[in-house]
């Protein structure tokens, strides 16, 4: 399992907190950017997701908006 996981979040967003907790529970390493603090990453997120909503999850180039545990698990190939 060496897929690269990048997530874009805000500190106040409960779904983002769930996502981080989920990845930690499953022992998946990830890079996290708080886009409310980081303008550059906010633009990068907009570019990738064509949208304005968090969390955005990028798993090896597959971009998802919003946290759906089933879809994330499927993409990571975990149960």
């Amino acid at each position: 399992m060496d897929k690269k996981v990048v997530i874009y979040t805000t500190s106040t967003c409960p779904h983002c907190a769930h996502l981080k907790e989920f990845l930690k529970e499953k022992d998946i390493p990830f890079e996290n950017y708080d886009v409310s603090q980081n303008r550059e990453k906010l633009l990068e997120m907009r570019e990738k997701s064509h949208g304005l909503a968090v969390p955005v999850i990028d798993i090896d180039g597959k971009v998802m908006v919003g946290f759906n545990p089933q879809l994330v698990s499927k993409e990571l190939g975990i149960k």
Binding site: P14, S36, L52
Partner: peptide
């Protein structure tokens, strides 16, 4: 939806600085 329309100010609010 998710392109400016949102149902969660707490989540997405900071994106609209």
């Amino acid at each position: 939806k998710n392109r400016g329309v949102t149902y969660c100010a707490t989540c997405d609010g900071p994106l609209f600085a």
